[in-house]
């Protein structure tokens, strides 16, 4: 793989990341969101995979495969299992922010992402680091999803988007944190998602709904 091909591939990955996030904000259908999430996960895993191939680093390739497996496969699968049991509808019906505003906010967030990551680019300008702003924007979009969605499942999705973004930043900035930490962190993530899914199930059983506004009995 040549350097230009590598740069093109990384740019592609970054575009996929960003695009998938934006579409997740746009769409309200859970099924679609989960599919986009899987695409995004593959894109995140694509970074170390591409880098590994480019740098001829086997360890990076393995990590990339693992990430693709986890974020592109397992996690969306866990979420979709939950979706199958969802009876209250498979759409986010009433988000706190309507779609138009949400897209507008997303645009703003992308800009913020660029602004924030500006110093990192100044420090070391490589093909990887040039993609960091996009990854950072994904993080912020994830945060926005987390805050603005009211259904339990979409909070899980927002959380995953954010985490994808962080992982992408990690790979882009430093070709990934040490493997043991990457593995531990991924394991943690998986467990958290599992817990969220179990809790969503219980919530569903208790409330017949997963509207999080109903969760405001604990207050002072």
């Amino acid at each position: 793989m040549s350097a230009s091909e590598f740069t093109t591939l990384l740019d592609l990955v970054a575009s996929v990341l960003l695009l998938s996030s934006v579409i997740i904000v746009w769409r309200r259908d859970y099924g679609a969101m989960i599919k986009l999430l899987a695409v995004q996960g593959v894109a995140v895993g694509g970074i170390p995979l591409v880098s590994g191939i480019y740098l001829k680093d086997l360890q990076l390739v393995v990590v990339g495969m693992m990430v693709i497996l986890l974020r592109g496969g397992v996690l969306p699968w866990v979420l979709s299992r939950r979706l199958a049991d969802e009876t209250a509808g498979s759409r986010e019906t009433k988000p706190l922010v309507n779609t138009t505003s949400a897209l507008f906010v997303t645009a703003l967030l992308v800009m913020v992402g660029y602004l924030v990551t500006h110093p990192m680019l100044r420090r070391a300008s490589t093909p990887e680091t040039r993609a960091i702003p996009a990854a950072f924007a994904v993080i912020l979009i994830g945060v926005f999803l987390l805050v603005s969605r009211k259904r339990a499942l979409s909070q899980g999705i927002g959380f995953l988007v954010m985490d994808n973004g962080i992982d992408a930043v990690a790979f882009l900035a430093t070709l990934g944190v040490p493997a043991i930490i990457e593995i531990g962190a991924s394991f943690d993530l998986l467990l958290v998602l599992a817990i969220l899914v179990i809790l969503t199930g219980r919530m569903h059983a208790k409330f017949k709904d997963t509207d999080l506004d109903a969760l405001s009995e604990l207050r002072d």
């Binding site: 706190l96 913020v112 602004l115 924030v116 805050v147 009211k150 909070q155 506004d213 009995e217 207050r219």
Partner: peptide
């Protein structure tokens, strides 16, 4: 303060996000 802590998780998360933004702004 009590009224702000209304028990709504979206509000709590928004607070956290606001904190994140403050950090982003302050760090520059």
């Amino acid at each position: 303060v009590r009224v702000f802590h209304s028990g709504r998780i979206s509000r709590y998360l928004a607070l956290g996000a606001a904190g994140l933004f403050v950090v982003l702004v302050v760090s520059h």
